[in-house]
Design a protein around this nucleic acid. Structure first.
Lengths: 332, 332
DNA sequence: GTGAAAGCGCTAACAG
DNA sequence: CTGTTAGCGCTTTCAC
């Protein structure tokens, strides 16, 4: 356990004070070229790296950003994380990724962990609406995908145009003749889910249809299995439907398999549209038509705004909506 | 930007010294029950959380672990991260997940970032063999999946039984009559890939066959696309083969789609076995037979060992091999 | 049982 | 241009 080399060592070795070394490191000027070269040489020679704990303690700033995400295992979220992280890295920040497994308790503890580690900023991807995010009042945060339950007024929210997504997904099926379209959502009623549902209703009203209330199926959780059983159940109960708008590709897949395993033909008898455009929707038995979200743009935008916030910039816009797109495949 | 409450505030508010507060927080004894209660009450009341920077600076210990992973977007790695994180969290550690995108430059910088942040331990999942991991000599590390290129003697390595996996995957096809089996691997020749290849050879030798050298196809990168083009290319060149052992499910999928898009029937004309058992292998057009890795156990084991290492325990075993299992589906 | 004081590594006045 | 100094929040001797 070798004690690591500190700024003091560098100062001693290059015959200057620690203050000067600090200046050189941070490029704060006020030192001669010769000093700079000498110090730099010593630093390189001893491959010294500043201790961020000392630095952070002093400046009350760390170069880390907390990313809170509900399920790293879901490609959709993973891709957002990847994009956020990539952009952050470019800007010299590192990321503390916290995977909450959709568990509010875990999320609460992670928020405290991040707070305690004095992260410079926060990116919440689909934070749980049951978790109050009032804790780190003073640290910049941007929310992606789900509108947070917070009383803070200074937060920024980025989402896809979920309303339009729901609308064009539903329209796609309506146009192709469906008249009894089931909507698969989850019972936590996140903002994204609600908007998609509104889009679903809007599309119907454009066709002069009022969908049966029983077609709105709120699942306990967003998963392949829950969609599978919900649709299986529908079939057993002989409910008549000719379309499924699944608010997630995983739900769409569960629905698809449930249908196919009962010999119901997709898209001939029932059409399906999903949401997210994750790769499984492209490669599954019957490739699923879905709504693409611009994940790349999401990550980019989130980082751009967050860094602005950290630098104390006043943000004029607090709400960003990214366009979505229908990807037509074999289920419609 | 409200200054957060510090140990000093707590001391003042509860009428004791900071030393006593510190003792109470860390349960180091030498304080009366009354003092404890009072201090605890004040802490709760002000919902004080110790500043980990100060603590870490003083103790030279942080409660964070760095997790380095090549591609968070790949469900296989994501699941390992999830398991590692879950177990770490239970033990009171938080995780700094670093996604390198298989880019050695990024990996190098992340290693330095982790070093600089004084993480208490490191979990490398499939670290790049081109990156020398000699930097943080003094910090406990466990490696998963790929044997690292390091000169350190005190590291721990956990992997699946890749040799056996390669062997039973190949055997499955041999048993079902395949005699010309292509092996899809990547050109970086990681330890895992090499072991799988050895298994492939062993299975053949059990059948008294020496596979043609041209059947070993080393891809530039592990991806759906590269497998797709490699197999398409094989078909165009009229190469005769009746089986594909893909060292990854994503490769298996790329191969499968390449075949099916040319009207080659799987498994009738060509059989395929993949590796990892990610969900897409189960749900794709023709569900892929694959080798399951016990990801749960991997994460559990890694954390158990790492925590031991951190506590200074002497580790007797430095190498762990986890059993694998063939999952039979429609491609064989 | 408790407090005073030193110091972890670093930065930012301030003085020169 | 450079050095001295104080102090960020915390733990840990060492006294009492």
């Amino acid at each position: 356990m070798t004690r690591s080399v500190t700024i003091k060592d560098i100062a001693r070795l290059s015959g200057v004070s620690v203050a000067t070394v600090s200046r050189v490191i941070n490029g704060n000027g006020r030192y001669s070229k010769e000093t700079e070269d000498r110090v730099m040489a010593v630093i390189k020679e001893n491959n010294y790296t500043p201790n961020m704990l000392g630095k952070g303690l002093r400046t009350n700033k760390t170069q880390t950003i907390g990313i809170v995400v509900p399920d790293i295992t879901n490609e959709f979220f993973a891709t957002i994380v990847q994009e956020v992280e990539r952009n952050l890295f470019k800007a010299g920040y590192s990321s503390l990724v916290c995977n909450t497994n959709e568990n509010p308790e875990v999320e609460k503890r992670y928020i405290s962990v991040l707070n305690v580690n004095r992260v410079s900023g926060l990116v919440y991807i689909s934070g749980d609406t049951r978790v109050k995010h009032n804790a780190p009042e003073n640290i910049p945060a941007v929310y992606i995908d789900r509108w947070p339950s917070t009383t803070r007024r200074d937060i920024v929210f980025i989402e896809s145009d979920n309303f339009e997504g729901g609308r064009i997904a539903t329209l796609e099926m309506l146009q192709k003749g469906c008249r009894r379209i089931v909507f698969l959502t989850d019972e936590r009623r996140t903002s994204a889910q609600r908007s998609r549902q509104e889009g679903y209703f809007r599309a119907h009203s454009e066709y002069g249809i009022v969908p049966d209330e029983s077609f709105i199926i709120a699942l306990k959780e967003i998963s392949y299995d829950s969609a599978f059983s919900a649709i299986s159940d529908l079939c057993s109960r002989q409910v008549k439907f000719d379309g499924i708008f699944a608010s997630t590709d995983w739900l769409a897949l569960g629905a698809l398999v449930a249908l196919e395993s009962r010999g119901i033909r997709v898209p001939e008898q029932v059409k399906i549209v999903g949401f997210d455009n994750i790769s499984i929707s492209k490669h599954c038995s019957t490739p699923i038509s879905t709504i693409n979200q611009d994940v790349r743009k999401m990550g980019e935008k989130a980082v751009e705004i967050l860094l602005g916030l950290i630098e104390g910039k006043e943000i004029d816009k607090k709400y960003y909506v990214l366009p979505v797109e229908l990807i037509r495949r074999k289920t419609t």
